[in-house]
Structure formats: C-alpha cells, structure tokens
C-alpha cells in the first residue's frame, strides 16, 4: 500500500510506504496489549480484595510492561524506520535580522536613555524593595545563634538521670556498662545527651586537671560527635573506645575521649560529675567547652 500525501501548499511529497508482511510482529504487539489488559483486570481484582504490595507490583509490571513492549514493537517493526534526513537550520540569525534586532533594541534604549534619573530611581525603588522585604522573611525563619552553640543545658548540680528519668547511683552501671544520660530537667535533649561509661571501680583521671571527674570509675562524655554531630554510641569495652557510627571516628575513653582514628578533630567534651550525699550522680559543672561539631564563631 502506498499513500501519496498532498499538503496544503499543493506540492506532492514522495510517498512513505507502510511496512507490510509483518504478521508476526502484529501478533507480538497484540499479545503484549492483551497481556497488559489481563494484568490490569488482575490488578483491579487485587485492589478489590484489599491489595498486597508484591502482587500489585508484579501486576503493575506486567500491565505497564505490556503496553510498553507493544508500543515499542509497533513503532519499531510496523512502521518505516527511515533513516530520514532533515536539514539543520542555521541557529545564528541572518545578518539583516540581527541588524533589525539591534536597531530595535537601540531605538528603545535611545528612547529610554533620555531620562537617566528616572531609570536610577526605578532601580533604587525596586532594589530597595527587594532587599528590605527579604528581612522579615529571613528573621522569622529562626532565632539568631547568639550563644546557643556555646552552651548546653548542663549546669552545676544538675541531677543526672537515665532515659527513663531514674537517677544514677554507684550501682546503676556494672563495670563495662554504658548508658545515655541527661540532666533531670532535659531528658531526651538533643544537645545535653551524654554517655555515661563505667570503666572500673575506682576514681579515674582521664587528663591532668580532671582528677575528680571520674568518681568510682564513672566517666561522662558528650554524646555528640565533634565531627558531624552524630550520637557516638558504640562502646567497645575491651579496647575502651567509643566509635561514631556515621563516619567512624574513634575516641579513646580512658584518656579523655581523644580522637585516635577517623575524621573527628577534637575530643568529646567530658562532663565533671560527682556522687552527692544521697548517692545520686550530679554534674559538678556544665561542659567546659562547646559540644558537637565546629563552627565559624568558635575560636
């Protein structure tokens, strides 16, 4: 079969023949569409019965795949593939068009150019409007950081409690035990989270000047990694190391959580603690340095 097309300009185009003798492909296309229809019916039934993810996924695959294969096969085997040739237009405009364009542009500029002062005023008013009106938006988004990154909720005398709110006594942790603790007034706090580790039975000094910070073998460190702020929760008891799960920074528990491996640049800040007269664990003071990752203002 051959069709001769005639477009509105009256010119006769070379005809494009359809592809004949492709009975096999027609059957493939028809079969694909039929499979798709059947799968869609199945999908309907599956939805009706309440649905099940794997059945839905498999049937969707068959449904969509059937349509896809049918369409591609139709477009690939049952219609002529060419190759046809199409010329590219020159992207660049013709010289006369460019001149006309520039002429128009310059004419407009000449007409505007006579009032430079108005132009500057327009720039000022629009620019100022834009800048000034960003501020309410920006300032409402959140508070200024101020000193927030330098401090934590911990303060002197804070009662140390577990996630469940129970105070910590000498017997709470066995040697080789670990627990996440908070000040009693900020349980679950993202900034005040602290790991409490018991490394032995006797007082432990991690670094000179921290002689009273490790009563009865209890050591408390900020749980926020100094690298990217992940909770440092992996305690390796035999090697006495804390590992950060995100980027594998390794801290040595016995020597003040100094980083020994990985990308963390600073030790985890240590919280000075003591057992009060009732035997409950309390903070001697807050952290002596900002906790967590670095930031610009931190010297």
């Amino acid at each position: 079969m051959s069709i001769t097309e005639r477009d509105d300009s009256g010119a006769s185009h070379p005809a494009i023949e359809t592809v004949e003798g492709k009975r096999g492909y027609e059957l493939v296309v028809a079969a694909s569409f039929m499979v798709s229809v059947l799968a869609t019916v199945g999908l309907g039934v599956s939805y009706w019965l309440g649905g099940q993810p794997q059945i839905e996924g498999a049937l969707l695959f068959v449904t969509l795949g059937g349509i896809g294969i049918g369409m591609v096969a139709w477009g690939k085997y049952l219609v002529p593939q060419g190759p046809y040739v199409q010329e590219r237009e020159t992207l660049k405009s013709e010289i006369l068009e460019r001149e006309a364009f520039l002429e128009s542009l310059e004419r407009g500029q000449r007409q505007l150019g006579r009032r430079p002062f108005l132009g500057k005023l327009l720039g000022l008013s629009v620019g100022l409007f834009g800048i000034i009106n960003i501020f309410p938006f920006l300032r409402s988004l959140g508070p200024q950081p101020k000193k927030a990154l330098f401090t934590t909720p911990w303060k002197a005398g804070a009662l140390i409690v577990s996630v469940g709110g129970a105070p910590i006594t000498v017997d709470t942790l066995e040697v080789g035990g670990i627990q996440t603790v908070f000040p009693s007034y900020d349980v679950g706090g993202a900034i005040s989270q602290t790991v409490l580790i018991r490394i032995g039975d006797t007082n432990w000094t991690t670094l000179p000047g921290r002689e009273t910070w490790g009563p009865n073998g209890y050591l408390a460190y900020s749980k926020i990694c100094t690298h990217a702020g992940c909770p440092v929760g992996l305690y390796q008891e035999l090697t006495q190391q804390l590992l950060c799960p995100c980027h594998q920074s390794l801290f040595d528990v016995l020597t003040g959580a100094t980083p020994v491996f990985g990308p963390a640049p600073r030790p985890l800040p240590q919280l000075p603690i003591y057992f009060d007269s009732k035997g409950n664990l309390r903070a001697q003071a807050g952290y002596d340095q900002p906790v967590g990752p670095g930031f610009w203002e931190r010297g």
């Binding site: 795949g65 896809g68 049918g70 369409m71 591609v72 690939k76 219609v79």
Partner: peptide, 9 residues
C-alpha cells in the same frame, strides 16, 4: 511510539 513505549517500560 518508541518513546511512549519506553515511558511505560
């Protein structure tokens, strides 16, 4: 047809 079919695939 090929591109449309490819979307479905």
């Amino acid at each position: 047809f090929q591109a449309g079919g490819f979307f479905f695939l």
